[in-house]
Design a protein around this nucleic acid. Structure first.
Lengths: 377, 377
DNA sequence: CTGAAAGCGCTTACAG
DNA sequence: CTGAAAGCGCTTACAG
């Protein structure tokens, strides 16, 4: 339907809006009956329910979220606060895609996402406190999990339904979804070791983040198990750090023959440094990334990466949070167990030319499809 | 302050929340007086106002957005709906940064941003209709402006405050902010012509968008004025189209010596095709982009681009929308003129090595700073 | 299965 | 400058 053909709203907004009282009058019932009917609750006969619904549709009634919220119903909004410089949203491909995945699931359930960018973790916690006090959101999704994260006890205290993105561990009694970083690390190390590499380096992102620590640990452990050299080079935030770190690796007496970067952007930045130094990829040095995106796919050579689809990650997180919110509303002591349970997303390795010896056949294991559904156990 | 040290909320949310009635009781006034005081309106003496504010703070009172909205106050939320595949959010660096800019200004004014992703333009319009009917938002920002855009009359009909991102023109009576694409085009063409190029090509994005049309027109016109060849190659959405388009350009009897891409991602994709074909940049073919980002900066060679900072764009849009919302609340016939006025953002050209002849000195005109404030006339 | 009532927390005229 | 009241549009017990 073309909206320009729709009948104009009478009064153009100002003035009388349609309420359940109007519907009730027309249907010859009380407003309470209308409420029961439109919310699909028992208490009205099927016949009256249908009549009420028809009238509601005819009158183009829209429920008032404010009135519903004031009367105690859920506000149908979930929140997410980012304690990061605003630039990151634009820079890190992960966030955009993650948000898109969240939105997709939330929209379908008539929920909306409210976002806020703040400067510090204290400000983030204060935002949760206010959102909760104002009943602005039904729940929140928490990202950028850290060790001993102060947000966890704060949220536990508040009792605001929350889903933690990150783990395993360090999320207290809150439910979480996470990609198994130790597993991802093993996939990468094993792949490179299988190609004959004996000196691996990892260019590591922000060391405050839990996943950085988990990767550090797994990287060192796995390399030790396989009896190969492991170099971890800290790069901090952003592409600049990755460039410096890569240069530092090249300057070593014995440079690594393969480098794994913590993000797609870091991998690109590092690759450029390698190329400028005359290193060929993958002949002189193999390159892989913990983060997949359009960038790794489009690059020449295409870069081998862990395919945790950020969109799918967002979808899983949203689904999980809605479960948590639902459970917290129906808590008749029916157990919080199932709610607190965490969910792991299995990482898969997408092998591309940046680690593929010239002329080798494409690895058949994983199709190149950009958004193949990841298994969510 | 560390939040874990904060006193726990009594009752942990369930049960009694602090209301203006509580404050009124403690202060020995009526709830109405409290309302006036906390909202900074006249009607209470300074002494009582101060006393009330102190008590509110002490009781950690938080206003109820639902109650306020129900009583007719603004809901302090603006909406943005994207009728695009969810992937775009993650793929296009522009959107993430634009949203970050929006957030920054909105947060400061205690507004929040509500986003929704839909499939079609009709669904987008339907969303506006519902948001308006439900009083869910105080206003909306409209992106991806097209020619004869059906959203414009729909929003005009509704009377929902809206800010259009795009133009000039084609936004009806709604206010808009836009980057002057004709101007940007002239900057690019003049720069390349000044370097001696006589055969320019433009790899054009989605032709549905108004800015694509404006660029098409300006590109052809300017090249004609300068007496040089202009080739416009349509590429549609995404990187794949840019690759095909670039290959097509290379296959011409007389390939262009310079190519301008409609986005940073397209420029990268095209560049890779050029390099694979053995073209050196900028020696064999110069490359430039209408869109700047971390990608163009990090690439080797760094890519010349139009520096419309997406973050700044978002900031300007948010500021403008809040003005519009404010004006629509105070409309005492005080004129909608100042409200409808559009605002142009001046494009600047950031020259980098992708168009710079080997050995040439860096162009001094524009500093490389990533987020230098753009002049907003 | 239905009806009448109270209440959610605020704002806004309207009298004093 | 202050007080008492009505009303925003719902939902939720609580009687019939």
């Amino acid at each position: 339907m073309t909206t320009s053909k729709q009948p104009r709203q009478s009064g153009s907004g100002r003035g009388q809006r349609v309420t359940i009282a109007d519907i009730a009058r027309r249907a010859g019932v009380t407003p309470a009956a209308v409420s029961l009917a439109v919310n699909g609750r028992s208490g009205v006969s099927d016949a009256t329910r249908e009549r009420i619904m028809a009238i509601a549709a005819e009158l183009r009634w829209e429920p008032s979220p404010a009135a519903r919220a004031l009367a105690g119903a859920p506000v149908l909004t979930v929140g997410m606060v980012l304690a990061r410089p605003a630039e990151v949203l634009g820079t890190e491909a992960f966030f955009g895609a993650f948000v898109a995945g969240l939105q997709e699931v939330l929209s379908r359930r008539d929920y909306s996402l409210q976002m806020k960018i703040v400067e510090t973790t204290d400000a983030e916690i204060e935002t949760y406190r206010r959102w909760f006090a104002q009943r602005r959101v039904d729940g929140v999704v928490v990202v950028d999990l850290r060790q001993d994260d102060p947000r966890i006890p704060a949220l536990e205290d508040l009792g605001l339904p929350a889903l933690v993105v990150g783990g395993p561990g360090h999320h207290g009694s809150l439910p979480s979804v996470y990609v198994d970083d130790a597993h991802a690390t093993r996939l990468l190390v094993d792949h490179l070791a299988g190609l004959g590499h004996r000196r691996l380096a990892r260019v590591a992102g922000n060391e405050d983040f839990l996943h950085t620590l988990l990767r550090d640990r797994a990287f060192t452990e796995r390399c030790a198990e396989l009896g190969i050299d492991a170099i971890t080079q800290d790069a901090g935030f952003g592409t600049r750090g990755a460039e410096v770190a890569t240069a530092a690796l090249l300057a070593r007496r014995e440079p690594p023959t393969a480098i794994v970067f913590d993000s797609d952007e870091m991998a690109l930045a590092g690759t450029h440094v390698l190329e400028e130094a005359g290193s060929r990829i993958p002949e002189d040095v193999a390159v892989a990334s913990y983060e997949d995106s359009a960038l790794t796919r489009t690059h020449r050579p295409p870069i081998t990466a862990i395919g945790r689809s950020a969109i799918e990650y967002g979808r899983v997180a949203a689904t999980r949070l809605l479960e948590v919110i639902g459970a917290s509303r129906n808590r008749r002591g029916s157990s919080a167990e199932s709610v607190q349970e965490s969910r792991a997303i299995e990482p898969v390795l997408v092998v591309r030319d940046s680690t593929r010896p010239e002329g080798a056949a494409p690895a058949p294991a994983v199709p190149e499809a950009s958004d193949a559904g990841l298994p969510s156990s």
